[in-house]
Structure formats: structure tokens, C-alpha cells
Amino acid sequence: MTTIYEQRPGLSRRELLKRGTIGAALIITGKAVISPDRAWGMEAAALKPETMATLIKLARDIYPHDSVPDRFYAIAVKGHDTKAAGDAAHKELIEAGVADLDKRAGAGGYRGLGWEDDRVAILRDIEATPFFQAVRGDLVVSFYNQKELWPHFGYEGESYSKGGYIARGFDDIEWL
């Protein structure tokens, strides 16, 4: 199982510093990917944690919403890890796809490219590949179907339990 947890206890900032990266980048330790502010972490089951970290970056490059935190992108891509655990072909598709991204990016890999434009240029080249199609096709549902994210878009979701909008602004437009 791929697990996502919040406020992972135990790892102090000092420990994290000892282990390597800190700052804007995602932290990789053991099988886990941890957010720089340690607000959440994700335990990978089948894919390499580096691969998960790249998938999170890739997900943001595909659907960039700057005020949406990484956690939502992590939740959106975790299905690939879960699926890879029971599906060797999927595991290969994702690992090879990420390896290809790193190769195209050159030294430092895909996550090492500082400018979104440079990463997106690579993505435009691989847009038609089964890897990109699989990631984007899954992401359009796994990302936008997160209820916790809907307020970001100003979408209110379920309305039956609140009696619909008949008394809650279905015709409240004033600026016309």
C-alpha cells in the first residue's frame, strides 16, 4: 500500500539536514517522500521514492495550479505506486518513463531543471507516449476529483443535503 500521512513524527529538522536536501525540493529518505515543510510524507510501495518525487513534479507541470500545495499532487499520483505493486507492466511503464525524462533533462535529471518552461519543453516532446498519456489520463481524474481541492476552484460540490441552491444564490449575480 502506498500511504500518505500528515505530520510525520520522528524526523527532526536536524536529522533531515543530515540526510541531505532541504529547501524547496521534496525530501527522499528510505522509501519515503517527504514535503520540505514536513507537513506530509508518502511511503512508496513499489516504485522508487525518487520516481514518486518526479511524478509529483511532473503532475504539477501538467496541471500547474500555483496556490495548490504539493500534497494534492502527491495524492493524485499515488495510484501509480499502488497499481505498480500488482502490475509489473505498469511499474515498468512508469519507471522507464521517468528514467527517460531524467535522461532527456541531462545532468541533475528532470527535477533538477529549474525552469518550468524547460521541463514543459521535454513534455511536449513526449506528449504522445504511452507513459505521458497514462500519467495525464489518470491525473485529470485523480487530481481534479479531490473534494478538498474544490474550494480552490470555487466549486461547492454536493448540494442536495443543503436544499439545493434555491435559497442559496442560484440567481445572485449582481454585476451584469
Binding site: P64, V140, V141, N145
Partner: peptide, 25 residues
């Protein structure tokens, strides 16, 4: 939002797409 993402520009991605979604409301 879920169907808008799937149907606004099927296969679309990048900032041209997400800036539209950001204006959903």
C-alpha cells in the same frame, strides 16, 4: 470541476488549461 477538467479540452494540459480551470467560478 471534475467533468470540466475532463471535457473542457480533452487531452489538454499546461497553463493554457489550468488558467482556465483557475477561473472556474
Amino acid at each position: 470541476v471534475p467533468f470540466m477538467a475532463a471535457f473542457l479540452d480533452p487531452g489538454g494540459w499546461g497553463r493554457a488549461f489550468t488558467s482556465a480551470m483557475d477561473n472556474y467560478a
